[in-house]
Amino acid sequence: MEQATVKWFNAEKGFGFIERENGDDVFVHFSAIQGDGFKSLDEGQAVTFDVEEGQRGPQAANVQKA
């Protein structure tokens, strides 16, 4: 698992990007966020996640709020 920071997340559209420590951004979809209830992330929030290869490149999976 990697630890990184949420760059931005649009709760209405259900997706955003996580900024990795190496500077690369990773796409995150609300369905990858672990937990119950409304799944959203806040800008600047610390998260841990795995990286999977998606249809359009790397994307976050198993996202957990740190």
Results as ranks from 00 to 15, higher is better:
M1R: 15
M1K: 15
M1H: 12
M1F: 12
M1P: 13
M1Y: 11
M1V: 11
M1A: 13
E2H: 14
E2C: 14
E2P: 09
Q3V: 13
Q3A: 12
Q3F: 14
A4N: 04
A4P: 03
A4S: 09
A4Y: 06
A4F: 06
T5A: 07
T5L: 11
T5R: 14
T5K: 14
T5P: 03
V6G: 02
V6N: 01
V6F: 00
V6T: 04
K7V: 05
W8Q: 01
W8Y: 06
W8P: 01
W8F: 07
F9V: 00
F9P: 00
F9M: 01
N10H: 07
N10Y: 05
N10K: 05
A11C: 14
A11L: 09
A11S: 12
A11F: 09
A11I: 12
A11R: 14
A11V: 12
E12L: 14
E12F: 13
E12C: 15
E12P: 05
E12A: 13
K13S: 07
K13W: 11
K13E: 03
K13V: 08
K13I: 09
G14P: 00
F15A: 02
F15R: 00
F15E: 02
F15D: 00
G16K: 00
G16C: 08
F17L: 05
F17K: 03
F17M: 08
F17G: 00
F17V: 07
I18G: 00
I18C: 05
I18S: 01
E19I: 15
E19K: 15
E19C: 15
R20W: 08
R20K: 08
R20C: 08
R20N: 05
R20Q: 07
R20G: 05
E21L: 12
E21F: 11
N22Q: 10
N22M: 09
N22W: 10
N22S: 11
N22C: 13
N22H: 11
N22T: 10
N22L: 09
G23M: 09
G23N: 08
D24H: 11
D24A: 14
D25R: 11
D25W: 13
D25G: 06
D25A: 10
D25F: 12
D25K: 10
V26R: 00
F27I: 02
F27S: 00
F27K: 01
F27Q: 03
F27G: 00
V28E: 00
V28A: 02
V28P: 01
H29E: 03
H29R: 05
H29F: 09
H29L: 05
H29I: 05
H29Y: 06
F30Y: 13
F30V: 06
F30H: 07
F30M: 06
F30Q: 04
F30W: 15
S31I: 05
S31G: 05
A32W: 04
A32T: 06
A32F: 05
A32E: 03
I33E: 03
I33Q: 02
I33P: 03
I33V: 07
I33Y: 03
I33T: 03
Q34S: 10
Q34C: 12
Q34V: 14
Q34R: 10
Q34I: 14
Q34F: 10
G35L: 08
G35S: 09
D36T: 13
D36K: 13
D36H: 12
G37R: 04
G37H: 07
G37D: 06
G37T: 06
G37L: 06
G37N: 06
F38R: 08
F38D: 07
F38W: 14
F38S: 06
F38Q: 06
F38A: 07
F38H: 08
K39S: 06
K39F: 06
K39I: 06
K39D: 04
S40F: 13
S40V: 11
S40I: 11
S40K: 11
S40T: 14
S40C: 15
S40Q: 10
S40P: 02
L41T: 02
L41I: 05
D42Y: 15
D42Q: 15
D42P: 07
E43A: 15
E43Q: 15
E43S: 15
E43G: 13
G44T: 03
Q45K: 03
Q45T: 09
Q45H: 08
Q45I: 08
A46V: 14
V47W: 03
V47A: 04
V47E: 01
V47R: 03
T48N: 07
T48E: 07
T48Y: 14
T48S: 10
T48W: 14
F49K: 02
F49G: 01
F49R: 02
F49E: 01
F49Y: 08
D50L: 13
V51C: 09
V51F: 09
E52K: 10
E52I: 15
E52S: 10
E52M: 13
E53Q: 14
E53T: 11
G54T: 13
G54V: 05
G54D: 05
Q55M: 13
Q55L: 14
R56G: 09
R56C: 13
R56P: 07
R56I: 07
G57T: 04
G57S: 06
G57K: 04
P58H: 07
P58M: 10
Q59T: 07
Q59W: 09
Q59F: 11
Q59H: 09
Q59L: 06
A60C: 03
A60W: 02
A60V: 03
A60H: 02
A60N: 00
A61N: 08
A61L: 09
N62S: 06
N62I: 05
N62E: 03
N62R: 10
V63A: 03
Q64H: 12
Q64K: 12
Q64A: 10
Q64D: 05
Q64M: 11
Q64P: 04
Q64V: 12
Q64S: 10
Q64G: 07
A66T: 12
A66V: 15
A66M: 15
